[in-house]
Amino acid sequence: MEVSEELESGLLTQPWASVHFGESAFLAKVCFRDTGYILLISDLSSVWYESVDTKAVEQRSKELNKRLTVNVSSFLNHLCNLMCPLLAGQPAPTTTFSCNRSASGLILHVKSELSGLPFYWDFHCCPAPLEMVSRHLVRPLIRMNLALQHQVQELISLVLQKDAEIEDYRESGATLSRDRLRTEPFQEETFQQNFMTEALRERLEISAMGKCVASPGFSPSGIRQLLNQEERLTILRDG
Score class of each variant (00 low, 15 high):
21 F>A: 14
34 D>G: 07
42 S>L: 08
38 I>F: 04
47 V>E: 10
20 H>W: 10
15 P>T: 09
20 H>Q: 14
36 G>H: 00
29 K>W: 06
18 S>H: 11
53 D>M: 02
27 L>E: 14
47 V>N: 09
13 T>S: 14
24 S>W: 05
49 Y>R: 03
38 I>H: 04
44 L>R: 13
56 A>P: 03
39 L>M: 14
19 V>Y: 03
54 T>M: 02
31 C>D: 08
13 T>W: 07
11 L>F: 04
42 S>K: 05
55 K>M: 07
25 A>P: 12
32 F>W: 13
14 Q>S: 07
27 L>N: 10
29 K>P: 02
18 S>Y: 08
53 D>K: 01
11 L>Q: 03
23 E>K: 13
14 Q>K: 10
34 D>E: 13
41 I>R: 03
19 V>T: 05
25 A>M: 12
53 D>T: 01
17 A>F: 08
45 S>C: 15
23 E>T: 14
51 S>F: 01
17 A>P: 06
26 F>N: 02
42 S>T: 14
42 S>M: 07
53 D>W: 00
38 I>W: 01
29 K>G: 05
42 S>P: 07
20 H>G: 11
39 L>K: 06
15 P>G: 08
30 V>M: 09
50 E>H: 01
33 R>G: 06
54 T>P: 00
20 H>L: 13
47 V>L: 10
48 W>F: 10
33 R>Q: 09
48 W>P: 01
25 A>K: 09
32 F>A: 07
54 T>W: 00
15 P>F: 09
39 L>C: 11
30 V>F: 04
55 K>T: 05
44 L>N: 12
35 T>Y: 00
17 A>W: 04
13 T>E: 13
44 L>C: 12
55 K>I: 12
55 K>Q: 13
48 W>G: 00
48 W>H: 03
23 E>V: 10
33 R>F: 06
31 C>P: 06
30 V>W: 02
14 Q>F: 03
17 A>N: 10
53 D>Y: 02
55 K>C: 06
51 S>W: 00
22 G>K: 07
36 G>A: 04
18 S>N: 08
14 Q>H: 07
49 Y>I: 05
39 L>A: 10
22 G>F: 12
35 T>P: 00
14 Q>E: 12
15 P>E: 10
41 I>E: 00
25 A>L: 11
41 I>C: 08
20 H>C: 13
49 Y>E: 04
37 Y>G: 00
